[in-house]
Simulated scan of single mutants.
Amino acid sequence: MSSTLVIRQPQPVMEICDSDEWGSGICDCCCFAYWCLSCFACMTASKYGECLCLPLLDVFGCVPPATFSMRVSMRQRYGIKGTMCRDCLYATFCCPCTWCQMSREMKRRNIQVVLIGAKNT
Rank of each mutant, 00 (worst) to 15 (best):
M1W: 07
S2N: 12
L5E: 07
V6H: 12
V6Q: 08
I7Q: 05
I7Y: 11
R8H: 14
R8L: 13
Q9G: 02
P10N: 00
Q11F: 03
Q11T: 14
V13Y: 04
V13T: 13
V13A: 07
E15Y: 10
E15N: 13
E15F: 10
I16E: 04
C17D: 15
C17Y: 14
C17P: 03
E21Q: 15
W22M: 01
G23Y: 05
G23E: 08
S24K: 13
G25H: 10
I26R: 02
I26D: 01
C29E: 03
C30G: 12
C31I: 14
C31D: 02
F32K: 13
F32N: 05
F32W: 12
F32H: 11
A33K: 04
L37M: 06
L37Y: 12
A41W: 07
A41G: 03
A45R: 05
A45F: 01
K47L: 12
Y48W: 14
Y48N: 09
Y48P: 02
Y48C: 06
G49L: 04
G49D: 03
E50A: 14
C51L: 11
L52V: 10
L52Q: 02
L52R: 12
C53R: 08
P55T: 04
L56C: 15
L56E: 03
D58L: 09
V59M: 07
F60I: 15
G61Y: 10
G61W: 09
G61L: 00
S69Y: 11
M70R: 13
R71H: 11
R71E: 09
V72Y: 02
R75V: 02
Q76K: 15
G79T: 02
G79F: 03
G79N: 09
K81V: 05
C85K: 12
C85R: 13
R86T: 11
D87H: 03
C88S: 07
Y90E: 08
A91W: 00
A91G: 00
C94Q: 08
C95K: 15
C97N: 01
R104F: 04
E105S: 10
E105T: 11
E105D: 06
K107Q: 11
K107C: 03
R108W: 05
R108L: 09
R108V: 06
R109P: 01
N110E: 14
V113M: 12
V114Y: 02
L115F: 11
A118G: 07
A118D: 05
K119C: 02
K119I: 08
K119S: 06
T121E: 04
T121M: 05
T121Y: 12
